[in-house]
Design a protein around this nucleic acid. Structure first.
Length: 276
DNA sequence: CACGGATCCTGATGGC
DNA sequence: TGCCATCAGGATCCGT
């Protein structure tokens, strides 16, 4: 499910309510992608000082460490009251991690369990660095520039869409937004990354920033089950130009949108608007 | 290093 | 209705 916009929407929906909360207890369901890395109850008593994000990782900054939360393909967070009418019910079959805090109950719901919650002593801890070090620049941050992205494409002769997904040239662009961004930039997804021209890299850079920012503003993309921590669905799925629109007329030229497979993932594009 | 493919897991969907 | 194959928003690991 979640690409960068969905994680950011999740972060925003949780941050204001959990900042300053003290962890009271921890409950776990089935194993996630990676082990937590500490005794669950060792988190009790720690305080959540800030909620940050790096790529698709949500970072719960604690006074004695950090929890790195990844939503995988099907994860979402839910935040409910600790007591009262809106209080959390017992853990469901797909609830695999729960933090009871003084300000509310935070749960990770993740049917496919590709998600993860990992504790590290700090962001410079090897545990955290192993996950974060390889990530490319933040698409909405100052390190992401058209020249930097152009240079990052140079070592790669594979299709540009796959390079976007790999997260080294820029982080956070997943399968939906990769198709959208390439359409907006008028670059064919199959183009060899190292053959991207400078003008194209300028267009692609702008398309990435614009598309992700817009998706965040719209609350992300809800295809089937994404919701922010308060339960609200996103709206961006109503505005995709190519993703999920195989056979439908292109917004710009009316030619049918095509679907191909690249690396076992679907790619959508317009063969006229994205001629090469 | 770069690349392609298998892999983790569950649920929805479509063909027969 | 059941059964089977395929596909789904991610990302790592392994062999070449």
């Amino acid at each position: 499910m979640p690409e960068l916009p969905e994680v950011e929407v999740t972060r925003r929906s949780v941050a204001a309510r959990l900042r300053g909360a003290t962890i009271l207890s921890v409950a776990m369901g089935k194993p996630l992608r990676w082990p937590l890395g500490c005794e669950p109850q060792a988190l009790a008593g720690m305080r959540i000082e800030e909620l940050d994000r790096r790529g698709k990782y949500l970072l719960l900054m604690l006074n004695q460490g950090v929890l790195l939360v990844h939503l995988g393909m099907s994860g979402s967070l839910q935040l409910t009251d600790l007591v009262g009418p809106g209080a959390a019910s017992p853990l469901g079959v797909h609830d695999h991690f729960e933090l009871k805090t003084s300000f509310g109950v935070l749960r990770l719901h993740d049917p496919r369990r590709f998600g993860a919650v990992v504790f590290a002593g700090s962001l410079s801890d090897p545990v955290a660095r192993k996950l974060l070090d390889r990530l490319g620049p933040e698409p909405l941050g100052p390190d992401f520039t058209a020249p930097q992205m152009f240079a990052a494409m140079k070592p790669h002769r594979v299709a540009i869409k796959q390079v976007l997904l790999a997260g080294r040239a820029v982080v956070g662009v997943g399968n939906i937004y990769a198709s959208e961004v390439l359409f907006l930039a008028r670059v064919r997804p199959t183009r060899a990354a190292n053959l991207l021209t400078k003008p194209e890299s300028v267009r692609l850079h702008a398309a990435i920033q614009q598309t992700l920012a817009r998706a965040i503003d719209m609350g992300g993309t809800t295809l089937r089950d994404f919701h922010d921590a308060s339960g609200s669905a996103g709206l961006f799925q109503n505005h995709t130009k190519v993703y999920g629109r195989e056979g439908q007329p292109c917004d710009v030229c009316k030619n049918p949108v095509r679907m191909i497979r690249q690396g076992q993932r679907s790619t959508f594009f317009c063969s006229v608007c994205q001629a090469r």
